[in-house]
Design a protein around this nucleic acid. Sequence first.
DNA 1: GTGGTCTAGACCACG
DNA 2: GTGGTCTAGACCACT
Lengths: 142, 142, 142, 142
Amino acid sequence: MISFDNFILESDGPIYLQIIRHIKQGIAAGTMADQEEVPSRRVLSALLGVNPNTIQKAYHLLEMEGILLSRSGSKSCICADPGKRRQIRQELLQNDTRNWVAAMKSLKLTREEALELAQQIWKENDCMDNGWRTEHDKEKGK
Amino acid sequence: MISFDNFILESDGPIYLQIIRHIKQGIAAGTMADQEEVPSRRVLSALLGVNPNTIQKAYHLLEMEGILLSRSGSKSCICADPGKRRQIRQELLQNDTRNWVAAMKSLKLTREEALELAQQIWKENDCMDNGWRTEHDKEKGK
Amino acid sequence: MISFDNFILESDGPIYLQIIRHIKQGIAAGTMADQEEVPSRRVLSALLGVNPNTIQKAYHLLEMEGILLSRSGSKSCICADPGKRRQIRQELLQNDTRNWVAAMKSLKLTREEALELAQQIWKENDCMDNGWRTEHDKEKGK
Amino acid sequence: MISFDNFILESDGPIYLQIIRHIKQGIAAGTMADQEEVPSRRVLSALLGVNPNTIQKAYHLLEMEGILLSRSGSKSCICADPGKRRQIRQELLQNDTRNWVAAMKSLKLTREEALELAQQIWKENDCMDNGWRTEHDKEKGK
DNA sequence: GTGGTCTAGACCACG
DNA sequence: GTGGTCTAGACCACT
């Protein structure tokens, strides 16, 4: 089953778009396999603390894009062959990076400064991950 | 006077937030000097083709943050001492880069792959700028 | 046994109401006799291609109205004495005709125009029936 | 302005379909002129005691059918040239009458019986209208 | 239990 | 004030 463990609701955009984004990221990252089941509307809505209808909207749009397959009464499942998977991945990579580059340029950073900053943040992020994992392990070890 | 030339309305977020973002970017980039006047509500609304109320909302929020100073009867102006300017810049840089790093990591890219991709997009973006500028110059040259 | 041959699922209303309507029409038209057995839940669900629960719901409501009698272990059967039969018939006739008259009046038709239109449609419908029956007979004749 | 005075919410179908039906009837009957304004979402929702969103849905579907024209910030208005008006009228007349004829036939009425019944109900309905009008006139006369 | 739809209320951008 | 969208809760048909 697909994991929504490290999914946290942000406050800036519509919730259903955040859900779509998370699923697309999962597909692009290989975390979500083809033909894999997704949580039902009710389960996911309870998990995220939002309305079932919001999940419904996200799933419906994914179905429109041909990424999800829903049959009434049965569980819905991911529907992403390797080709579509690659396409989604490229789309996400390009968009995010383009936006970041545009932002950095509008702040008048040189390419070197921007890459330097990115490296620094990347390391911080690594530490945070390790920190969390360590914390988490300690807790589990109890 | 502050420039809104290369400001283009995106479709994804609220317009007043896009305007706030643009002004903050201008301050952080040094394009907008301290005590510099901003366009009046009416002028800017005409320039961007949006409703005066939307501009009003953006300016009001900037005022709340202490970034804009409105004196009744007079023009509003930027109110950003070097300290605040640096703070805004850091805030924008950190946020954007953190988001990008998080996105790249969630797509399972290594640091090297991500930086490589960023460089590539950066170059593409350079070309586009040059292309556009050239086109633009030609047109102005007419 | 009661016939569901010329019963076709419409898309506009709840299915269980369509089933109730069909049975009431059968009773009112004299097609379904008193004490006649109705198809079991399983058989009818298979026949109509709908869920047994939906049939169950329709039968249950008919039971509430005293039109159907279910004895556990035995088959359910119609329970409509001549009085009830007349009542159902009147109810259906009145409702449908009242609705039609109201619709025609709201479209500003005179009584003559409405009756004329009704005659015309009636004839068309006759032709269709004959056409279908002929087709059907041919097919059965094979 | 279009009138919703004699519009009463029925309980059987979706509300938004009832609203669509009422507006189409108005157009077909000539009660609602071309380019005439319809009540705003808020006004009509308050009038009918339903949610603005329900009205929104009805209006949106009418817009999809090309019957309504909505401009943001401005009032919406009917958009029905004589051709479309006739088409809507035919559609309503045919559908309603076909349904009624089918219902009468399924109840085993002959054409003569059905038309006789229709005439009778029509007269009752006339009386009711007159009765109501009389009541109403009395009240206004006070 | 599943997916799908209808209604409800709040918010946003706009004239 | 206008129209448009997002989220919320309840109901229906179905496995």
